[in-house]
Simulated scan of single mutants.
Amino acid sequence: MSEVRTVQLGQFTDENADAVAEQLEAAGITWYDKQSGRWGRTLFLGEWGTRLFVDASRLDEARDIARSVLGSDDALS
């Protein structure tokens, strides 16, 4: 199994992350997610929603997909 270097695509609401992840998968882009738990959301203001990580070599393509799904550059935080 080959290793994939990932980078953070952005932090999204859970619903938006699901929509973006669906399209990343359809495009064959390796992705992972990190969802903040109840305690993380309570203790840390920056912990909300879901962070998506993608194959670093396909970051530009992943950004284009996220923009097309969400309709704006503001969605990539």
Results as ranks from 00 to 15, higher is better:
residue 8 Q to N: 14
residue 56 A to C: 04
residue 49 G to H: 14
residue 55 D to W: 03
residue 42 T to A: 15
residue 3 E to Q: 11
residue 76 L to P: 12
residue 10 G to L: 03
residue 31 W to F: 12
residue 52 L to G: 04
residue 32 Y to I: 01
residue 8 Q to T: 11
residue 24 L to F: 01
residue 67 R to C: 07
residue 49 G to C: 08
residue 43 L to R: 13
residue 65 I to C: 07
residue 26 A to G: 04
residue 67 R to N: 05
residue 28 G to S: 05
residue 63 R to V: 15
residue 73 D to V: 08
residue 25 E to A: 13
residue 17 A to V: 02
residue 51 R to S: 08
residue 29 I to P: 06
residue 31 W to N: 08
residue 75 A to W: 01
residue 70 L to Y: 10
residue 33 D to V: 12
residue 25 E to T: 03
residue 21 A to T: 05
residue 53 F to W: 13
residue 51 R to I: 04
residue 67 R to H: 07
residue 36 S to V: 04
residue 3 E to N: 09
residue 61 E to I: 08
residue 23 Q to N: 11
residue 63 R to L: 11
residue 62 A to Y: 02
residue 6 T to P: 06
residue 21 A to C: 15
residue 64 D to L: 10
residue 23 Q to D: 12
residue 6 T to S: 09
residue 3 E to V: 07
residue 34 K to R: 12
residue 32 Y to P: 00
residue 20 V to E: 01
residue 6 T to N: 07
residue 13 T to H: 12
residue 73 D to G: 10
residue 28 G to H: 00
residue 47 E to V: 06
residue 11 Q to G: 02
residue 60 D to V: 09
residue 54 V to M: 01
residue 49 G to N: 11
residue 38 R to G: 02
residue 58 R to Q: 15
residue 16 N to G: 00
residue 77 S to A: 08
residue 68 S to R: 09
residue 67 R to G: 04
residue 39 W to M: 15
residue 61 E to W: 01
residue 63 R to G: 10
residue 44 F to Y: 00
residue 60 D to N: 09
residue 12 F to V: 03
residue 27 A to Y: 05
residue 30 T to Q: 11
residue 75 A to N: 07
residue 20 V to T: 01
residue 24 L to I: 00
residue 77 S to R: 08
residue 74 D to Y: 09
residue 61 E to T: 14
residue 29 I to M: 07
residue 75 A to R: 00
residue 57 S to Y: 02
residue 44 F to V: 09
residue 41 R to I: 13
residue 10 G to T: 07
residue 25 E to I: 08
residue 42 T to D: 15
residue 4 V to S: 00
residue 71 G to I: 08
residue 60 D to F: 02
residue 60 D to W: 02
residue 10 G to V: 03
residue 23 Q to A: 14
residue 33 D to T: 13
residue 21 A to N: 12
residue 6 T to Q: 14
residue 59 L to R: 06
residue 18 D to Q: 14
residue 10 G to F: 04
